[in-house]
């Protein structure tokens, strides 16, 4: 059984339908990417899964239906979500951001993990007491990822980490992400526009177009198939 099983997910804003019965799954520890152009519904997919917006269909976690739960309830079930635009809490310090990330865990565990993340990201350690809002985009993305891991999630939903970052910084973020996920053993459901980077990172991929999955397969398959690349990925 998959860790996450999404089927027939439908969702819209007002009268505008965005998702038309979406199916996807993520296995324990698996790295999966959803590719698609701007506006295909990638962000909406993640928001629907984590309960930020109302949706219909089915979202199962370990076979348990979780659709309709609030984001904080989903987090206690093991799903963390780094939203588009990173969602760092700008009026809180770096350390407080990380502490909020561990809100549902005991303070001893939080303190322990805090030190670990400061070792992994020395730059965050240097800026420990600085307000998150005053950091650079790349640093904020690192913070957002570290914060999500503070809850020790089984599944991380990651929304376009490359957004607004310079190519070199994006590369660095992905490298760190790969190290961290390996270390933590979490599954990741990533949505990205940057197909090249994402296919290097992930094991399996879906291509989303206008609210429906049009292609799915292993990352290497997609990387090898020129027709798909031309038609959907603009490569």
């Amino acid at each position: 059984m998959s860790l996450l099983e999404v089927s027939g997910l439908r969702c819209g804003y007002g009268i505008v339908e965005v998702l038309f019965g979406l199916d996807l799954s993520v296995a324990e520890g698996e790295l999966v990417v959803v590719l698609g152009a701007n506006g295909a519904g990638k962000t909406t997919t993640l928001r629907a899964i984590s309960g930020m917006i109302p949706a219909s269909g089915s979202v199962r976690l370990d076979g348990t239906e979780v659709l309709g739960r609030r984001p904080d309830q989903l987090l206690s079930a093991g799903v963390a979500h780094v939203p588009q635009g990173r969602g760092t809490i700008s009026a809180l310090s770096v350390e407080d951001n990380l502490r909020v990330g561990g809100y549902q865990r005991s303070s001893a565990e939080v303190t322990e993990d805090l030190e670990m993340w400061f070792e992994v990201f020395p730059r965050l350690s240097e800026r420990r007491t600085q307000l998150a809002g005053s950091m650079s985009g790349g640093e904020q993305q690192m913070l957002a990822i570290a914060r999500a891991f503070m809850s020790r999630p089984r599944l991380l939903l990651l929304d376009e980490p490359s957004l607004g970052l310079a190519p070199l910084v994006t590369r660095e973020v992905f490298d760190r992400l790969r190290d961290v996920t390996q270390q933590m053993g979490s599954a990741v459901l990533l949505v990205e526009q940057n197909a090249n980077l994402a296919l290097d990172f992930a094991a399996r991929a879906y291509v989303l177009e206008a609210g429906s999955i049009v292609v799915s397969g292993s990352a290497s398959e997609l990387q090898g198939d020129e027709a798909i690349q031309k038609a959907y990925l603009g490569l």
């Binding site: 965005v18 506006g39 962000t43």
Partner: peptide, 12 residues
């Protein structure tokens, strides 16, 4: 208040 996706979603 619409999320970022909306504007472009209706365009595709």
């Amino acid at each position: 208040t619409e999320p970022e996706d909306l504007g472009s979603a209706s365009g595709t």
